[in-house]
Simulated scan of single mutants.
Amino acid sequence: MIVLGFESSCDETACALVEDGRLIAEHIASQADLHSLFGGVVPELASREHLRLIHRLHQRVLDDAEISPQDIDVVAAARGPGLLGSLLVGLSYAKGVALACDVPLIGINHLQAHLLVAELEQPVTYPALGVLVSGGHTQTVLMESALQYHVLGKTLDDAAGEAFDKAAKALNLPYPGGRLIDILGQNVPPDRSLFPRPYIDNDNLDFSFSGLKTAVSTFIDQHPHLRLKSMPASPDATMLESFPHELKVVCSSLMWSIADALRIKVERALKRTPEVQSIIVAGGVAANSRIRQTMGELAREHNLAFHVPRPAFCMDNAAMIAYAGWKWHAAGYQHALNIDAIARGGKIPDDMIRVNTDTEKCLAEHFA
């Protein structure tokens, strides 16, 4: 079975093909250079870029895999959460392809797809604790199986990625700044008293990073010499090496505060879910070296399998959408062509259509 997947939830346009759970082709077009001019994603520009790029990416993956539209069995597309205009471009295009090819359509929960992409690289043992860390979301999720999960804790305001992005902007680092903070902070001991570990003095599993954003912003205002005088367009390794050591300590300390706050909440979640056998860390911020290290150490301490996708699969991509589509279709589900895109903050409805009357048997075959 070949699944064609489309991703357009934010500022990456992507198209991929998955055959029987194996990635056979993918193309991604990043809009980072465009949005860096504005210091962040401009929704209207993102939508227009998706519209400009999606068809050519579709043609490229078909050419790379040497297949024709008639070979496609299922079309999958991210339906949310994300930027509504961007989602509408990808979902509408996917609807057209599904209709033209007379094949089923599946709308994919973008967040669930981030967690499932770990399976593309190695088998995952369930139940698993999913730790989703991205620019817009920070969640812990109990995954009873690949397709059965519920949220244990989520961000109450700003996500971890938002804290990285705002710190980078305050330091006048170019967008996307989280990657540069990671590079600058690597191999530099953090000052653990510099910034707070946000929202840990409680007994719940939720997250809040707004206070950390304020603390970092206040610190930089009090130390304006840390702010770069001009924003470098594409700083190379030599330029980054020349940045002040004090700035690197700030980056390292911010990473430690975020990673340790995550560790505390994840460890708390593990105590409440003793049945868990694996930890999956996913989302764009899962590419951060300190978070990967901290979560890996936590998994080893608890004798749990640890899964974190390679950095390319942490970012928004269509491989995860196509793979999730393959999972859902194998389990006997699809969507009607009138499904809606769901913007960030909205709840993804449980509106899949069960087309396989022996779904339980199908689930047992694919997810045992």
Rank of each mutant, 00 (worst) to 15 (best):
residue 365 E to A: 12
residue 246 E to P: 01
residue 78 A to C: 14
residue 8 S to T: 14
residue 74 V to Y: 01
residue 204 N to P: 03
residue 357 T to H: 14
residue 344 R to N: 12
residue 146 A to W: 08
residue 141 V to D: 10
residue 53 L to V: 11
residue 144 E to T: 14
residue 25 A to F: 11
residue 2 I to T: 12
residue 166 K to P: 09
residue 271 K to D: 15
residue 174 P to E: 10
residue 195 F to H: 03
residue 260 D to L: 05
residue 334 Q to A: 11
residue 110 H to Q: 09
residue 172 N to L: 13
residue 83 L to S: 06
residue 160 A to S: 13
residue 48 R to V: 10
residue 219 F to C: 02
residue 199 Y to S: 08
residue 236 D to E: 10
residue 199 Y to P: 02
residue 91 L to M: 07
residue 168 A to Q: 06
residue 199 Y to F: 15
residue 244 P to W: 10
residue 66 E to L: 09
residue 326 W to A: 03
residue 103 V to P: 04
residue 141 V to S: 10
residue 333 Y to D: 00
residue 234 S to W: 00
residue 143 M to E: 12
residue 251 C to E: 07
residue 288 N to Q: 05
residue 315 M to R: 10
residue 272 R to W: 00
residue 18 V to N: 01
residue 86 S to F: 04
residue 287 A to W: 03
residue 108 I to E: 12
residue 213 K to C: 10
residue 76 A to M: 06
residue 224 P to G: 07
residue 67 I to M: 12
residue 253 S to F: 11
residue 359 T to Y: 15
residue 265 K to R: 15
residue 147 L to G: 04
residue 349 P to D: 07
residue 190 P to T: 06
residue 353 I to G: 03
residue 211 G to M: 08
residue 280 I to G: 01
residue 17 L to K: 00
residue 357 T to C: 01
residue 354 R to D: 05
residue 264 I to Y: 13
residue 76 A to W: 02
residue 135 G to S: 02
residue 167 A to D: 03
residue 297 E to Y: 08
residue 24 I to Y: 04
residue 311 P to C: 08
residue 190 P to R: 05
residue 304 L to H: 10
residue 325 G to M: 06
residue 173 L to M: 12
residue 70 Q to F: 05
